[in-house]
Design a protein around this nucleic acid. Sequence first.
DNA 1: GAATGACCCTAACAGCGATAGCTTACCTTA
DNA 2: TAAGGTAAGCTATCGCTGTTAGGGTCATTC
Lengths: 207, 207
Amino acid sequence: MGSAQRRARATAKTRRLILDAARDLFVRDGYEATSMRAIAERIEYTPTAIYHHFENKQALLDELCAQDFRVLSMAFERAADVSDPIERIARIGGAYVEFALEHPMHYQFMFMTVRPGALDVDAAQSSDPTAHVYSFLRDSVAEAIHAGRLLPEYTDVDLVAQILWGALHGLLSLHITRGSHPWVDFSDIRQTAGAAQQTVLQGLLRA
Amino acid sequence: MGSAQRRARATAKTRRLILDAARDLFVRDGYEATSMRAIAERIEYTPTAIYHHFENKQALLDELCAQDFRVLSMAFERAADVSDPIERIARIGGAYVEFALEHPMHYQFMFMTVRPGALDVDAAQSSDPTAHVYSFLRDSVAEAIHAGRLLPEYTDVDLVAQILWGALHGLLSLHITRGSHPWVDFSDIRQTAGAAQQTVLQGLLRA
DNA sequence: GAATGACCCTAACAGCGATAGCTTACCTTA
DNA sequence: TAAGGTAAGCTATCGCTGTTAGGGTCATTC
C-alpha cells in the first residue's frame, strides 16, 4: 500500500522540479522570454512532460503566484495581530512593502502582470488569492470607518482601501521598473513608502 | 522637382498607415498578442513591407510611445498654466490620469515595463522623455515647498513628488492590470484617483 | 537609354505553445 | 500470475510568431 504513496511522492517531486525551474527562469528572463522548451531542458525532460503536470504555460505562473500569495497572506496574518485598526493598516502596509522588496520578481508576477483570459466571476471570487489578501486591508479599513476614526467624507470602504493600496503599489512598482534609472532621484524606498503611508493616513484620519 | 515631394508624401502616408494600424491593434489586443502579420493584413500589405519603414516590432511601439510622450508633455503644459502651485499639481495629476486612461497600452510601456539594458547616465538625462515629464511635477512641488504651503516636515522635493506620482500610478497601474477582474470591486477609476490625490494633498498641506 | 534606389513581393528560417498518438512502467484486480 | 488500467514519459507535428534573403517593378536620375 505504501507503493501508491511512493508513486505520489515521485509525481510531486517532478511537479516541484518543474515549478522550481520555471520560477528560476521566469525570475531571470521574464515570463514571455522563458519558453517551455527552456524549462524542460533545464530539468532534462521533453517539453511534453510538463504538459502532463500542468495544463499550459499560464498554469505554471498561476501556481507560482498562488504559492507567493500564501507567503504574503501569512505575513499579513502576523502583521494584523493588533487590535487598533489604524495601527493594523500601518503594519499591513509595512509587511506589504517588505514582501515586495524581498521578492521583487514575485511581486511583479502577482501585481504587475497583465493577466489575459476572462474569468468566471463566481469561481474567481472564491479561488483567487488576491481577494483573500485584499480582504486583510479591506476589513481593517471597514473597522476604522465603523469606529469613526476617518473623516466623515470617507464612507466607501473599497475607495479608501484602494487609495492606501495604490499609494504603496505605485511607489513599489515604480521602484521595481525604474529604480535603476538615473533620471529620477529615487530616495530610499522604505523611507518613501513609510512617508507615503503616513501622509495618506494623515489625510484620511479625523484630526 | 515636385515629384520627389510627392514620393516623400506617399512614403510618409504608408508610414502613418502602419503606425495607425499598429496602435489600433496594440490597444485592442495588447502588444504581445498583436502580430506583424495582423498589422500588415489590416493595411493590406505583406509583413515585409513594414520592415521597410521600421526596424522591427519594438520600433513600432517606440515610435508610438514617443508620440504619446509628446502628447502627455503637451497636456502637462496646458494643465500647468496656472500660478498656484497646489492647483497646478492637482491639474497635472488630472491630466496624468486622463492620459493613462486614454492610452493604457502606451502607459504600460512608458511606466509599467521593466526596460532592460543599462543606460548612459548623461545620455539618458538629456534624451529620456520621462525626465522632462517628471520635471513638471517636481518643479511644482519645489515651488509649493518654497512657498511654505506644505507641512514643515516635508522638505525633500523628490520624496513629495514621488508620493504624489506613486499614489496615482499605483491606482492606474492596478486598474490597467487588474481592472477587468471581478474579485476586487474597483470603483470608477477617475473618482478614486481624484479622491486619492485629494487625500494625499490633505496630508501634505499646512492646515 | 542605362543605372540607381525605393518599395513591395514570395519564400523561407528558427523558434514558439500546444497536441496527437505511441511506448513504457507500474499498480490493481480477477 | 495474467489482464486491464493508468500515469508519465517520448517522437513527430501543427499552426503560429518575428524576421530576413533575394527578386521584381517602377519612377527618378545621370
